[in-house]
């Protein structure tokens, strides 16, 4: 108990933890409170890595066209429906061993391709015609696109397929099968790291490394950085700006696709309204880290994931959203451009 409190001091948010809720949470007598803390930390970090992957999609798009892509969370929601449909159509559930692993990899790749292509198309249809319009118009167009995607998710959920529980209610949340069983993979001390936790790490870390490599060392990455800095100058240097923007949308969407499969396996439920929550968490993570900044998005995702888990464990789940948003506001008021963000230029 004391140890947990001492550890809690490191996270300012835990000042809000109610002392009387701690014994209640550990009342089953199996876990000591420091183990509860560590376990919540593992859950938080796993969710944080997923959020970070989605946040990268926000932050890349913002960095290059200065648009808060409101449709990004709902894009991930459609990706989850795509994945669930594929699981049903190819009977991926319960296929163990090498076949199961191959199926999972194929599912990840297919969903990423789907989300990437969809994001590319949204850019093409809803954002590209607005390049010269004001940024507010672009934002409204993104909000419109988000509404359209939510509605498509509702239609998709109404398909009379068995994975959707026969489509009895289009709006009802659907159960996503545990493609990776939630069993312990290994333990560190007394803290259990489950197999889905391992899956999260196995998917997110290589992708983040690959993205870093792409942005830093490839020609496309160089072009992306150039367009983000100054599109006019970039086009004068012979860079096809629209192609680079399209590629950015594709990559951001594809990362969202990977993330949404892992998210669905980890949280085991899919619904047409999940995009709002996913998008909001990722968006906050991107802003928290400093929007437009890739390492910032990862840091922000981890912070959001851990704060959420701690708030669920130590305060009360119903206050979690308010705490996350409160933290966001505090950080922005005292550090207006995010944790790692560059200072916004003043207009001169």
């Amino acid at each position: 108990m004391l140890r947990a409190a001492a550890a809690a001091d490191q996270l300012a948010i835990l000042a809000l933890a109610r002392a009387d809720s701690l014994p209640a949470f550990a009342s089953d007598g199996v876990l000591s409170s420091s183990e509860v803390f560590s376990q919540q930390l593992v859950t938080g970090l796993s969710n944080g890595m997923i959020i970070a992957l989605i946040a990268i999609g926000y932050t890349m798009v913002y960095g290059i066209v200065e648009l808060i892509n409101f449709a990004h969370g709902d894009l991930c929601m459609l990706g989850a429906f795509f994945a669930l449909t594929a699981v049903g159509a190819f009977a991926l559930e319960g296929a163990g061993g090498a076949g199961g692993t191959a199926g999972l990899v194929a599912l990840l790749l297919a969903t990423a391709a789907f989300c990437g292509a969809l994001n590319w198309s949204i850019n093409r249809l809803a954002y590209r015609p607005l390049r010269s319009a004001s940024k507010l118009s672009l934002l409204v167009s993104a909000i419109g696109a988000s509404f359209v995607l939510v509605n498509l998710g509702l239609f998709w959920g109404g398909l009379p397929m068995e994975v959707f529980a026969g489509g009895t209610s289009a709006a009802a949340p659907k159960a996503f099968p545990a493609l990776v069983e939630p069993k312990p993979a290994f333990t560190v001390g007394d803290v259990i790291v489950s197999r889905p936790d391992v899956l999260v790490l196995a998917v997110t870390v290589p992708l983040m490394l690959a993205l870093t490599w792409l942005v830093r060392f490839t020609k496309l990455g160089k072009a992306m950085r150039a367009v983000a800095q100054n599109p006019t100058a970039a086009s004068l240097m012979g860079i096809d700006v629209e192609r680079v923007i399209g590629a950015t949308f594709f990559i951001g969407g594809a990362l969202g696709g990977f993330a949404t499969v892992v998210y669905s396996i980890y949280n085991q439920t899919v619904g047409f309204q999940m995009g709002y929550r996913m998008g909001m968490d990722a968006f906050i993570a991107a802003v928290l880290g400093g929007i437009g900044n890739l390492p910032g998005a990862v840091l922000g995702g981890l912070v959001i994931g851990v704060v959420r888990a701690m708030s669920d464990g130590y305060v009360e789940a119903r206050w979690t959203n308010a705490i996350v948003f409160g933290l966001l506001i505090l950080i922005l008021v005292f550090r207006p451009s995010g944790l790692l963000g560059a200072k916004l230029r003043e207009k001169v």
């Binding site: 809803a126 419109g144 509404f147 359209v148 939510v150 509702l154 109404g158 009379p160 289009a170």
Partner: peptide
């Protein structure tokens, strides 16, 4: 069955129409 489940309830189209109107307006 699909149509019966979801398509034939026009309130289910609300966000689609609303969203399309916004995008088209902006474009």
């Amino acid at each position: 069955t699909w149509a019966h489940n979801v398509l034939l309830t026009p309130t289910n189209w609300k966000f689609l129409l609303f969203g399309l109107a916004l995008v088209l307006m902006m474009v």
